[in-house]
Design a protein around this nucleic acid. Structure first.
Lengths: 231, 231
DNA sequence: CGCGGCTTTGATGTTCATCAAGTAAAGTGG
DNA sequence: CCACTTTACTTGATGAACATCAAAGCCGCG
């Protein structure tokens, strides 16, 4: 992890509109003065389940995964998040430690604001508080939603759902580089690595996707959607 | 649904300590004046996915299920909640409609506070706001936690996990009446009704539980725990 | 260059869903 | 309150979906 010496201005940050718009100058200074920026490279752990929470984190650029590790040491990915999503969940108000681990799956820039400063501003500015809550609850709701969608499908449908998630919500295009390994896809959709690979290969053989290592192109979008719905 | 004419005092309510303790007299009046009580009998729908949110709900007595219905019409239960848990999720601050359906699975008393009153008090009293958030985020976190636990087990482990949940967290004893049907257990643990029944029967044959209709007694608690862990 | 993690495919067996068919229990209308 | 209808429960048989084990090629990195 690298901490930037020169802090970037928030003027062009997506969070400017999403969040900080409702702050007055003094409040903004309070937040900004306690704000630091950190850059994590692919694979670096940002926070571990059980780490103490003493700051509020949001993702400025890059991509992260939220996951939990079970007693056997197996990871289960809860969600993949992009800029605009919060990293900190609501636990920052209730739990003293992180309930989930967070790892960068691409080079990722994270903004960190000390919890004390955030709380000060939240108490004084209820419009801001509402926005923070709003965003945080979205993260939880999205996790619950996607788990709901995953659990009612079988392998093919799960893979299709995941590929469409990447195409539509993350990369906004039909060709992209898989940000995670095939093992991790398995950890996300609750399947073994082998079956994940087998299903991707089937999609390739059936002409639904083309695949070159991690580069995936969705060739038949309609069929993919149909598999995601029915599978 | 029956609406009580005489509103009960909050003095002996569990939420008194959990929530309303931090309110001053004026704030308490604000909340209490807009508060109504409703009694739902077993099976009655309290809110449906998509219903507009215009109040804040909490469970005073009884038992409810939170669930979502998929496009094929199949229900998936997200959680079972008891008094002390909130019914309203964080969506009350962000979404205008319920994201989950809520149904009483036992005779249930629900307190309802108009959203406007709640928001007024939240803005004026940050200690109260924090407590509300706290409780609400717990509900989301619990859903995510239990889905995480369920998805890494197979049938026997899932059933064992669920029975231990009932014994330890809901009924605080080894003998209890199943609050939901076997089909609903399937909807909760993502299994078919038949396999749910078969597994319960196996547990009975193996002397781990005894079963008389909906009455379950856990005979061998240790073995049940071991199945929940390893299965 | 070699080691470890990732990827791939095949063979095999287990777990689970589906279908079928019947009993029991619970709710409903006359 | 009883006949009727629906829903819940149960068991067995069968096949599909999936995990596991095994073995080998690939790739990146120190």
């Amino acid at each position: 992890m690298k901490t930037s010496n020169e802090i970037e201005s928030c003027n062009y940050c997506i969070y400017k509109k999403l969040l900080f718009d409702s702050l007055n100058d003094k409040e903004y200074q309070e937040v900004n003065n306690s704000r630091t920026e950190h850059i994590y490279s692919r694979g670096e752990i940002i926070r571990k389940e059980g780490d103490p929470i003493n700051s509020f984190l949001y993702l400025r650029s890059g991509l992260i995964k939220l996951y939990k590790t079970n007693k056997s040491g197996k990871d289960h990915i809860l969600s993949i998040n992009k800029p605009g999503d919060f990293i900190s969940l609501l636990s920052i108000f209730s739990n003293s430690v992180y309930k989930y681990s967070i790892t960068a799956i691409e080079e990722t820039k994270v903004c960190e604001v000390e919890l004390q400063s955030l709380q000060k501003v939240i108490v004084s500015n209820s419009a801001f508080a509402l926005r923070v809550l709003n965003r945080m609850s979205n993260v939880s709701d999205d996790i619950i939603e996607s788990q709901f969608e995953i659990r009612q499908r079988q392998v093919k449908g799960r893979i299709a759902y995941f590929l469409l998630f990447l195409a539509d919500r993350i990369y906004h295009g039909r060709e992209f580089r898989l940000p995670i390994t095939r093992r991790e896809i398995g950890e996300l959709i609750s399947m073994t690595t082998e079956n994940t690979i087998r299903t991707l290969s089937e999609f390739r053989k059936d002409g639904i996707i083309s695949m070159d290592g991690k580069i995936i192109t969705i060739l038949d979008y309609d069929r993919m959607q149909s598999i995601s719905k029915t599978g």
